[in-house]
Design a protein around this nucleic acid. Structure first.
Length: 330
DNA sequence: AAATAGCGCAACCGCATTTGC
DNA sequence: GGCAAATGCGGTTGCGCTATT
């Protein structure tokens, strides 16, 4: 389907926005709403294409955007939703109050992805690097099938939510246009993180998502972390993890904090994919074993569903507190 | 102090999807 | 139902800032 790009007109400005341009765009949208993005630049007196204006507005000028450092809860949410949804940034953004998909995408690419890689976790599959070796076992197959089923279900659900959000946005815009004269300036700006939605992070922002694995216990001065068995660890099977202390790792302190605070959710997910055992708990690890650098972890028989129930409940709770709660708007 | 490498982020590009006629 | 326009989305790029050599 051939479509002429909106920005191929000669004379249209590209590159960074100036404060004057921002002001013009802001003033116009506050006065009229954005309406048709294609016609907006001309009306607003901007030498930009509509696409560029839309991007500038949604990613930067919108008044309901939260900027600055991501909180641990936000990071946790991103990682878990990414495990569930993949690179569907806009869907992920609907679950993070006041964050844009672009910002989340950038943060993932520049921070979170690297951290997962450092931890030996594939940022695409959220599986431990060695994990594929286990995929031939019946248990992991059924676990993966179950996970896949759940992920598909949630994915479909989120798509439906996104659709509802779009519809509500449209209704909201119509409402604004009808009441244009009396409307407050920002009233027209319904977006995926519109203030009309119930606050997505309320509840999930504070909730501690629990990994299906047991909690790692950290001492004050030695932040223990679960690390993938390295090639040099000479371990006989993949169910063994190296345990390192913060003093020997090239991982920054901030990474330790992060991993400690989020209780290693990705590792939990990895374990989940593995159909892994909660007996990975490091609380059972003896100090000398830890110092030796490698620890054999028990495999025990227990129900896959029971063990991972909390973890998935956490994700479902996260999803449940999504903007789709805005259905009360209708 | 200058050069350069690395990082973070805003913005662009192009494809996919939705909408309107 | 078909087509074109409009919009949304994700991948990528390029620039400015900071750290390192």
């Amino acid at each position: 389907m051939g479509r002429s790009p909106c920005c191929d007109k000669a004379g249209l400005k590209k590159g960074p926005w100036t404060p004057e341009e921002d002001q013009k765009l802001l003033a116009y949208i506050e006065e009229h709403g954005h309406g048709s993005w294609r016609s907006l630049p001309e009306k607003a007196g901007l030498q930009r294409c509509g696409k560029s204006c839309r991007l500038r507005w949604t990613n930067y000028l919108r008044p309901d955007i939260k900027r600055g450092k991501f909180t641990v809860q936000e990071e946790q949410t991103i990682i878990q939703l990414h495990a569930l949804l993949g690179n569907r940034w806009s869907a992920i953004a609907t679950h993070l109050a006041k964050r844009t998909d672009n910002e989340i995408k950038n943060y993932w690419n520049t921070h979170l992805k690297k951290r997962l890689v450092k931890m030996g976790i594939d940022p695409v599959t959220h599986k431990h690097k060695n994990e594929t070796l286990l995929s031939s076992t019946g248990q992991s197959k059924s676990a993966a099938a179950t996970l896949s089923h759940m992920a598909q279900w949630e994915s479909a659900r989120l798509e439906a939510e996104a659709r509802l959000a779009r519809e509500s946005k449209l209704l909201h815009l119509q409402h604004y246009q009808n009441k244009k004269a009396a409307a407050t300036p920002n009233h027209c700006l319904a977006h995926k993180s519109s203030a009309n939605w119930t606050k997505p992070n309320k509840g999930n922002g504070d909730q501690q998502l629990e990994s299906p694995t047991s909690t790692v216990t950290f001492s004050e001065n030695h932040h223990l972390m679960i690390m993938p068995s390295g090639e040099n660890n000479n371990v006989p099977n993949m169910n063994e993890f190296a345990v390192t202390s913060s003093t020997s790792s090239d991982v920054k302190d901030s990474d330790h904090d992060w991993m400690r605070q989020i209780n290693c959710p990705t590792e939990g997910l990895t374990s989940l994919l593995l159909g892994d055992s909660a007996d990975r708990s490091l609380s059972t690890v003896k100090n000398d074993e830890a110092e030796a650098g490698a620890v054999a972890v028990n495999e025990s028989e227990y129900s896959y569903y029971e063990d991972n129930k909390n973890y998935w409940n956490s994700i479902l709770n996260l999803v449940d507190s999504s903007p789709s709660d805005s259905s009360t708007m209708f």
